[in-house]
Design a protein around this nucleic acid. Structure first.
Lengths: 356, 356
DNA sequence: CTGAAAGCGCTTACAG
DNA sequence: CTGAAAGCGCTTACAG
């Protein structure tokens, strides 16, 4: 038997109301608490946060004092629901531990937060199907804009995004048919350029070590295409699983050489792979770059300093991030409309260290 | 499709209601749209997403079909407001372009998202005041948990966080007085250990190149303390601004040598600084490690391969991320309570490449 | 297993 | 410059 008796003096109707009002327990401060203390209406408190110019200076000051004293922090879940403005943007990237993408995220995030937006980070790994289920999760937060990595998205993802109608920037790649806006560079052209670089240096038998994600495949296609123009059709390849690492490169080069010992140039999918390949070459007594030219991708700072034998491709990840943010912000502030699509090719540079 | 029929004649009173109802324009699908199509109530649709076991199999199937067909994505701003569960956790880190923190963020994010949480990323830079205003922004989203970097927070931030009552994990450092939970290691002990390592190798005149953020200062303190035990009080230092880079290290070493040309060991704040210092040493004709020992911090993969002359300190950023996530999740699932604070020291290892 | 009513904490659209 | 009323799209707490 229960020894606890409900307070008898409260009417039933009242008890019900009260029970409902407190569901979830006594939460934090609400805008009405601040309003009451400051002797104004909730709308005025709201204006203090969202439109301070429209509030009389003394009122502003008084409300701010109360906010400060109480430690009130507005609830943006409520604010966002009410105003249909979440002040949130989503960034969907394969990974953040690869320093190339993290540079982009860094400046993107800095730029967006300066403009009053916060960043919801979603890591997609390297699979497109994953990206799509992630998108739903992300869209449930009603972001006002989305940054996507790459241009290889499923049709249903593209359709969904177009349907939602929020600004979208695809990054780190190029295409003629972006979903909306675009900041990147052509992986295909990089492949072409690296092949050209190898050829100009006298290479006759170039090979490839790379992953098989969409962007790596585009570089591969450009690389092979350019070589085919010179009649080189047989290009030995070694595929590695992302994320790429020094260890992968170290393992891949000997395998490549075992299958084709006469290769004289290798295009690696990343600087880490290139460093690994360089290490393997050293162990096997192969001179780089005289016997074997090696080109990486990324132009990581440390590589420049420690491995002058390597060639690499520099891409400005920070420029991508800052411009992606600007594109989004321009659209969000109404400066540009969907009618004016925007695309920016930030390009790339082949960097040869010895000459630098 | 016969679904889109403009309702013909609406009474005026009704028109007003509609105007208010549509403020913000004709937004997306609502739960009521799905409910209507599926012939159930909105609550049932809600259950399909949040508590599917409580719904009859056929109902479940029918609702899911409609959701699929319509492309409905629930609004979590509304859901979070209503349930007081945002399903959001915040991660406040100085930067994400430094690969050490990004490793932590990567696995933290992966682990949290597997458990149904999304990550709000907040970059604080290296200033504590910045961190505090960031916290308010972050708290306005009503996250259910917070990951913090370091333990050096202002008192008001600590108080605020305790007040809010959500689980907090501090990371990448150690303290006896955590706000709540803790996963990290002792920077002071690292300083002690590196000094001990240098001494054991016969160094008599160790020096320091590092930033002056809280964690770097802790390493410095441990380093100096250990040296003081051997009577070495004068420790030449060069301070660099974060984020550290190869260029900084390259500039710092000559300055250090100009002031104290007899130094025989340098503890650098990061592997990048160490690589820069190594480059400068090479240019100056100083042999590493025989004439000058150099120790970095981070044990970055590429450094292991390309700069075997360097010693470094390995810290497992991924272990920090995964455990921080677990601590948070255990608390969120009610498996642990505030009454049982949790702290984990993941430790560190001094790595000497030549012996490896 | 399912639903009608009320409420989460804000902001919009008016009106004054 | 300020406020009263209504609504944003969900979920909770009941009841059946």
């Amino acid at each position: 038997m229960s020894t606890i008796k409900p307070a008898p003096s409260i009417e039933h109707a009242d008890a019900t109301v009260r029970a409902k009002r407190t569901r979830g327990g006594p939460k934090g401060l609400r805008i009405t608490d601040v309003a009451a203390q400051a002797g104004v209406s909730p709308i005025t408190v709201s204006r203090v946060f969202n439109n301070p110019e429209s509030v009389a200076p003394e009122t502003l000051e008084r409300v701010r004092q109360v906010v400060q004293k109480l430690g009130y922090v507005p609830n943006r879940l409520a604010g966002g629901l009410s105003s249909a403005r979440s002040r949130l943007v989503a960034a969907i990237v394969p990974t953040v531990s690869h320093s190339l993408f993290s540079e982009t995220i860094q400046v993107f995030s800095e730029t967006m937060s300066r403009a009053g937006y916060e960043v919801l980070l979603a890591l997609s790994g390297y699979s497109a199907s994953n990206e799509e289920s992630l998108l739903d999760t992300v869209l449930s937060r009603r972001p006002e804009g989305v940054l996507l990595t790459g241009v290889a998205h499923t049709e249903s993802l593209r359709g969904r995004l177009k349907n939602v109608g929020i600004p979208v920037v695809e990054t780190w790649d190029m295409t003629d048919t972006p979903i909306d806006m675009l900041v990147g560079f052509s992986h295909y052209q990089i492949g072409v350029a690296v092949a050209g670089h190898f050829l100009a240096r006298g290479a006759r038998r170039p090979a490839l070590i790379s992953a098989n994600d969409a962007r790596a495949l585009a570089r591969r296609a450009g690389f092979r295409e350019r070589l085919a123009q010179e009649g080189i059709e047989d290009v030995p390849e070694e595929q590695v699983a992302p994320p790429s690492s020094v260890a992968h490169g170290k393992r891949a080069l000997p395998q490549l050489l075992a299958r084709a010992r006469d290769i004289d140039a290798v295009f690696c999918g990343s600087d880490l792979l290139a460093i690994g390949a360089l290490g393997a070459a050293r162990q096997m007594g192969v001179q780089v770059p005289s016997q074997l030219a090696i080109c990486g991708f990324g132009d990581l700072e440390f590589a420049t300093e420690t491995t002058p034998q390597l060639t690499t491709v520099r891409v400005e990840g920070t420029r991508i991030g800052v411009n992606a943010a600007r594109f989004l912000l321009d659209r969000l502030s109404g400066e540009t409309s969907v009618a004016e699509p925007r695309a920016l090719d930030v390009g790339f540079t082949i960097v040869t260290r010895e000459s630098a």
